[in-house]
């Protein structure tokens, strides 16, 4: 699976939302499913899927789906 698809599926699984909800404009706390608890579940899923350990700063900065892509690029993961 390509990185972009892995990222999308990680969001689908962690937030328990349909794939159609996952767009670049999706922001943290903009839907009830992406609250702080789901955010930490998402981080764990991303770390599992991409085999990285994210910095605390990056966890806090991951405020949207688009931002997640940008942050993962720092870890040489191009989504």
């Amino acid at each position: 699976m390509m990185a972009a698809e892995k990222l999308k599926q990680a969001f689908v699984k962690s937030l328990a939302v349909p794939e159609s909800v996952i767009t670049d404009s999706l922001e943290y706390n903009s839907i009830k499913e992406w609250d702080s608890t789901a955010h930490m579940i998402l981080i764990a899923e991303l770390e599992d899927v991409f085999d990285v350990m994210l910095d605390t700063d990056d966890i806090i900065d991951m405020s949207s789906y688009a931002k997640a892509k940008e942050i993962l690029r720092k870890y040489d993961i191009d989504c």
């Binding site: 981080i43 764990a44 770390e47 599992d48 350990m53 605390t56």
Partner: peptide, 10 residues
């Protein structure tokens, strides 16, 4: 603890 907890949860 914040890093350790994440590793443990995995």
């Amino acid at each position: 603890s914040q890093y350790a907890a994440r590793l443990m949860q995995r």
